[in-house]
Each structure stands twice: as C-alpha cells, then as structure tokens.
Amino acid sequence: MPQPDTTHVASIGRTVFAGDGAALGRLSALYIDTDTRLINFGALTLTHWGRRHTVFVPLDAADLAANSLTLRCGGHLVRHSPKVQVGRGLPAESEAALYAYYDMPYETPIDATRRMLPAP
C-alpha cells in the first residue's frame, strides 16, 4: 500500500489565492483520495459579509509558496463550491458532483465506498 502524500500538509493555515489573484481565505483541512493516497482537495475557510463558511477546493496543480497557496481555479468558482464541515468526509453520493463541479475526472470506487476522507 502506498504511503499517503504529505506535500500540502504544511499548507494548513496558509492564505489561499485564486488563480485570478483574488485572496480567498485560509486552508483549514486536507482530504485524501483513498484510491491513490494523494491529497487532492482541501477545505478552505472563507469570510464573506462577516459570515464564515468552508468549501472544498482542488489542490491539483496548486502553487505552494512560502506563505501562501495559489489554486488554478478562479475566485468565483471557489466561492460557490460545495460547502463542507471540517473534519468530516464528503458523503459518497456527493463526490461525483464535486469532481464535476471542478471539471475533474472521477471514477466511482469499485466497492462503492467513499473516495475522499479527511487526511490524517
């Protein structure tokens, strides 16, 4: 069994920017793909009009700098992304829709279990 990816672990708490340069919020959690053992999504805490909510953001092709993380997608797409409660996995029946939202390929796991879980 491959070891889990740890590339983005140090990015928790960093400021996240959209691909268009807009500051979005802070990365609050990481999610691992149970098939590949790679960290492929993060939970991003946004503050908008004094309200906080957390959304899923794809970390593939994200640019990790010393104090920030820049996503490949735009701010508008991120702000309207499916919401998440930090530390909880995405329900299995919602995973395909999340991947489709970000125009990412998705294969349903053979055993019909979750594919995305909070990273340890």
Rank of each mutant, 00 (worst) to 15 (best):
M1G: 11
Q3P: 09
P4M: 02
D5M: 08
T6Q: 12
T6W: 09
T7A: 06
T7Q: 06
T7D: 07
H8L: 08
H8D: 05
V9G: 03
V9T: 08
A10I: 09
S11A: 14
I12W: 08
T15N: 09
T15M: 11
T15L: 14
V16Y: 00
V16T: 11
D20W: 00
A23K: 15
L27R: 03
A29Q: 00
L30I: 03
Y31L: 03
I32P: 10
I32K: 00
D33M: 05
D33I: 01
D35C: 05
T36P: 01
R37M: 06
L38S: 07
I39V: 04
N40R: 15
F41K: 00
F41M: 04
G42T: 01
H48N: 07
W49A: 13
G50A: 04
G50Q: 12
R51K: 05
R51P: 05
R52H: 14
T54I: 02
V55E: 03
V55A: 00
F56C: 07
F56S: 03
F56G: 04
V57Q: 00
L59S: 04
D60Y: 06
A61C: 12
A62P: 15
A62H: 06
D63F: 06
L64E: 13
L64W: 13
A65R: 05
A66P: 14
A66V: 08
N67M: 11
N67P: 07
N67R: 10
L69I: 02
R72S: 10
H76A: 15
R79I: 11
H80M: 13
H80L: 14
H80P: 11
H80R: 14
H80W: 06
P82H: 10
P82Y: 01
V84D: 02
V84S: 11
L90H: 06
L90P: 07
A92P: 13
E93D: 12
E93R: 13
E93S: 10
S94H: 14
S94Y: 08
E95R: 08
E95N: 08
E95M: 03
A96S: 12
A96K: 15
A97H: 13
L98D: 07
Y99M: 13
A100I: 02
A100F: 00
A100K: 15
Y101L: 05
D103A: 15
M104I: 13
M104Q: 12
P105I: 09
Y106H: 09
E107N: 12
E107S: 13
E107R: 13
E107T: 15
E107I: 13
E107C: 10
P109H: 01
I110Q: 13
I110A: 14
D111M: 05
D111V: 05
D111K: 05
A112E: 12
T113F: 08
T113D: 04
R114F: 07
M116F: 04
L117G: 07
P118L: 08
A119Q: 11
P120M: 09
